[in-house]
């Protein structure tokens, strides 16, 4: 498409078009604006009905409080320890699921065997199941493994349920990779890992970025597993943010809540701004091409 006649760029239609687009920009940006301006003003300005206004009295106190002194659950630790939990959880989970996904994709496309497609279908279905279906046995399993209520337990869970999508990405990517190159290398005597390392991996940059961003965003933003399988001191950021907002007794410090919400959003938002193209590719590959 995109072939609407663009003779005069100043027609009435164009003006309406751009106005509409601008209106929708405001619609999408509004909640971000609300979070940002209200995280930088004293509480009194919010409760006096000034949510949409810019701060009269700019202050970073809500940010400092959300980071290091706000009441989260029972303790007044701020969100800092939970932010660190999320980082400690995300990095190994993303790395492991991406590596395993790359190897799986390689086997499923270049070393296929009868039943590989069915196997892949079964693997994919696992991406879409409601995780309520695995909560009860997983809680038991983590207990048996001695990982209940710990960050390593969460790493394990995210790794396990991250494999499906990372395999999907690498499989679809490697399917388009010329198999002749692999066969030629085999005839030259290169083995399984050597071919992977020397031939496929060097050209896997883009899909690795897509996969890492997808896993990072998903795991960072997860709430269900975090809420089900963590203890007070192993909670990820999303769970801590929810506790901060829901359980605050007495005065509700909206400005602190907004500051905390931005903190929880910042890592994935930054990744999106820096590498949005890859994020969108991941989204599309995960949906349009089941």
């Amino acid at each position: 498409m995109a072939d609407a006649p663009a003779k005069s760029s100043f027609s009435l239609g164009r003006v309406v078009l751009y106005t509409l687009l601008f209106f929708f920009c405001i619609y999408y940006l509004l909640p971000l604006y609300v979070m940002l301006v209200n995280s930088l003003k004293p509480l009194s300005e919010i409760t006096a009905g000034g949510m949409m206004a810019l701060p009269k009295d700019w202050t970073v106190a809500p940010w400092l409080s959300a980071w290091s002194s706000a009441q989260v659950g029972v303790e007044a630790t701020g969100l800092r320890p939970y932010f660190l939990n999320s980082i400690i959880m995300v990095v190994p989970a993303v790395a492991l699921s991406t590596i395993v996904g790359a190897l799986n994709g390689y086997v499923l496309t270049k070393w296929t065997f009868p039943g590989a497609t069915i196997l892949f279908g079964l693997l994919l279905f696992g991406c879409f199941i409601p995780f309520q279906m695995v909560l009860i046995p997983m809680a038991r399993m983590l207990g048996l493994m001695g990982l209940a209520g710990s960050v390593p337990g969460l790493i394990f869970v995210h790794f396990v349920y991250g494999i499906g999508f990372s395999t999907l990405y690498f499989r679809n990517y490697y399917a388009a990779f010329p198999t002749e190159l692999v066969r030629a290398a085999q005839i030259d005597g290169a083995g399984f890992f050597r071919i992977f390392w020397r031939i496929l991996l060097p050209s896997s940059g883009p899909i690795a970025v897509v996969c890492i961003i997808w896993q990072f965003t998903n795991i960072w933003n997860d709430f269900l597993f975090g809420a089900s399988f963590s203890d007070f001191d192993s909670q990820p950021m999303t769970v801590a943010l929810n506790n901060l907002v829901q359980s605050s007794t007495g005065v509700k410090e909206y400005n602190v809540h907004f500051a905390g919400a931005i903190m929880a959003a910042l890592p994935t938002l930054l990744v999106y701004i820096v590498a949005g193209r890859y994020f969108v590719r991941g989204l599309m590959a995960g949906s349009v091409k089941g």
């Binding site: 509004l30 919400a261 931005i262």
Partner: peptide, 17 residues
């Protein structure tokens, strides 16, 4: 960009809005 956010963040923003 909202797709990059956690539903918890979205929930907090809209809850107070």
């Amino acid at each position: 960009y909202p797709m990059a956010l956690s539903f918890i963040v979205t929930g907090v923003a809209w809850k107070w809005f």
